[in-house]
């Protein structure tokens, strides 16, 4: 059965595609200081979901090269998004400068191939930026593999592809019968950072509503996968 859930909230993007034992996922956080960060988030999110479905080259080099390759079409599409006519001349000039510099987004994408009794599974993930990637095995958090790699200066740009360094890539086998949990969220939901235990959806929603601060300061996207 095909399941496709895509949500947009401001400049963040989440996409999940599940087919049989395979789950592809993407979470993007558009860079608000770039031109139309929501465009980069949406464009990259959709493009990566498509790539995850059809690629057979899972090497870091192959992925890095693909991230560069998709910039020309992205730039072409971005050029169509000219600033609207009802902005002040100063804002228009600034927006045109930003358009030349491109649209940027941070991202985490990945693919889970569930293990069966007869066959090991596999998880593959790639990311750039400061969105959070947290991973639990048997209720023990094993996110230490990713620490120091969630960097604000890293992102993907429609103009130049990977910025601030090469994409980080992680790959590991999955064993049958081992309960795993993967949590991804953008920095707008950084209230979650100190929390180690699993939280039910209602509590996540409470954090998203952020009544204690009158709402979140930034867009936020959250995705949790358990198997």
């Amino acid at each position: 059965m095909d399941t496709l859930i895509q949500g947009e909230n401001g400049q963040d993007f989440v996409g999940v595609h599940i087919q049989g034992n395979v789950c592809n996922f993407v979470l993007c956080d558009g860079v608000s200081m770039s031109y139309q960060g929501d465009f980069a988030a949406r464009y990259l999110g959709n493009t990566l979901l498509d790539w995850l479905k059809r690629t057979s080259d899972w090497s870091s080099a192959g992925f890095g090269s693909y991230m560069k390759q998709i910039t020309s079409e992205a730039t072409e599409q971005l050029q169509q998004l000219t600033p609207s006519g009802d902005v002040s001349p100063l804002l228009r000039e600034v927006l045109e400068d930003k358009q030349r510099l491109g649209s940027q987004t941070m991202y985490i994408c990945g693919r889970i191939e569930l293990p069966t009794r007869k066959k090991q599974g596999r998880i593959w993930m790639a990311w750039q930026g400061d969105s959070r990637l947290r991973y639990w095995k048997d209720e023990t958090e094993i996110s230490q593999y990713f620490r120091g790699t969630m960097l604000t200066k890293e992102r993907w740009s429609t103009r130049s592809g990977p910025v601030g360094g090469l994409p980080h890539v992680y790959q590991s086998r999955l064993e049958y019968g081992e309960p795993m949990r993967l949590q991804l969220y953008t920095d707008g939901l950084d209230d979650l950072d100190p929390m180690r235990q699993w939280l039910p959806d209602e509590q996540i929603q409470l954090l998203l509503n952020a009544p204690h601060t009158g709402g979140l300061c930034d867009d936020a996207a959250f995705l949790e996968l358990k198997w």
Partner: peptide, 11 residues
């Protein structure tokens, strides 16, 4: 202008 640049989100 720099402040405008740093204050712009989308359009």
């Amino acid at each position: 202008r720099q402040m405008v640049f740093r204050s712009t989100k989308g359009s």
